[in-house]
Simulated scan of single mutants.
Amino acid sequence: MDGLAGKTVIVTGGGGGIGGATCRLLGARGAKVSVFDMNFEAAAQVATDIAHQGGTAVAFECDITNRAAVDAAVASAEAQLGPADVLVNNAGWDVFKPFVQTIPAEWEKLISINLTGALHMHHAVLPGMAARKSGRIINIASDAARVGSSGEAVYAACKGGLVALSKTLAREHARQGITVNVICPGPTDTALLAGVAEGAANPEKLIEAFTRAIPLGRLGQPDDLARAIAFFASDDAAFITGQVLSVSGGLTMNG
């Protein structure tokens, strides 16, 4: 993929499964990576891995639900590595239970992390991209946003909002050379999925059901998502914007 070397990238949730794989892949392809995560130790480990591969990365502790923390982290990242060329909004959280069994405190946390946090990141990074007339934004939503998912009503609502936000921003900023695209993972072998499964009556049965439902016969792996993210971040995707791509092993096949 062309055009990644030397680019400055911010990845939220960069210390986790999909985020960590994305940071490592972009770092290996020559990008300068800002690893944002609430868990600084996890972010630092990813940055260290990238450095050991000969790449450039810096870890930042950042709570994306806190606008002041986002502004400070973005300012620090850009001061150290340069203005952001690519933003990957990957951080997320979920709780697996029927909607009527959820409580407002859970809704607030889901919305704060999965939607409001992404709003903060866009609002902090987009003005600079617009001034420079270039940028790539990749938002990680979910196939739950496209087809629904039992037990994930509020999560699906947040991710649906992120899809709508992405399409709107793609229209608003296309003339400034900024592309905004969405990747929707299906069930992926990450700590988030494991946490969701723990909330089910029979976690092993739930994971088995997810796997059986996927036509390609396996759960997604973080690297599967990282490669799709890297494509949207690259020059190969320069004429693609406002699009939603499912990376789900065929679980959902939306036209």
Rank of each mutant, 00 (worst) to 15 (best):
I10M: 11
G54R: 00
G242A: 05
R146A: 14
A130P: 04
A197Y: 02
D37S: 01
Q176A: 11
G92C: 10
A230D: 13
P83I: 09
T179P: 05
A197I: 12
A77F: 04
G255D: 15
A21G: 08
W107V: 01
I183L: 13
L219P: 09
F231W: 13
D63F: 04
K97F: 12
R212C: 01
L192V: 08
S149N: 06
L193H: 08
G160W: 14
A174K: 04
F239P: 08
I10S: 01
F36S: 09
R67G: 03
L206G: 00
A157L: 13
A131Y: 02
I18W: 04
H120L: 13
V244S: 04
L115C: 04
L219A: 04
T102V: 03
V58G: 00
A237L: 10
E106N: 00
Y155V: 14
F96W: 14
I64C: 03
I50F: 00
A194E: 15
N254Y: 11
V74P: 01
P203Y: 00
S248P: 05
H173D: 07
N181Y: 07
Q101T: 10
E106S: 00
V11W: 08
D37M: 01
E204S: 10
G186I: 11
L119E: 13
A237N: 13
L87Y: 01
M1E: 12
I137W: 04
Q243H: 14
A200P: 03
D63A: 06
I229C: 06
P83V: 09
L245N: 03
T211Y: 09
D49G: 02
S134C: 06
F40R: 06
A131F: 05
G220K: 05
A200T: 15
A164I: 09
V74Q: 01
Q243A: 14
D94G: 15
I113R: 00
G255N: 14
I240V: 15
V86D: 07
T190A: 09
D63N: 11
A91R: 02
I178C: 13
T190R: 01
L119Y: 15
L126R: 02
K97P: 06
L162F: 07
F60A: 01
L87Q: 01
D49W: 05
G82M: 07
K109D: 05
Q53H: 03
A31Q: 03
A59I: 03
L192F: 11
F99M: 12
K109V: 06
M121R: 03
D143G: 05
M129K: 00
I183R: 00
E61L: 07
V33K: 07
G195H: 07
E108I: 10
D2M: 10
N66P: 09
V244E: 12
I240H: 03
E41I: 09
S76V: 05
R146N: 14
G16F: 14
L110S: 02
V100W: 12
S166V: 15
G117Y: 12
A47M: 05
D224M: 02
V88R: 11
Y155M: 01
C184V: 07
P222A: 06
Q101I: 02
P222Q: 06
R171H: 12
V58S: 02
A57S: 13
G199A: 07
T168C: 05
I113H: 00
A21P: 15
Q243T: 15
C158N: 02
K133S: 05
P185M: 01
A5Y: 05
V196N: 08
I140R: 01
N202A: 15
D224E: 06
N90C: 02
A91T: 04
C62I: 02
A170S: 12
T12F: 09
M253C: 11
N254M: 14
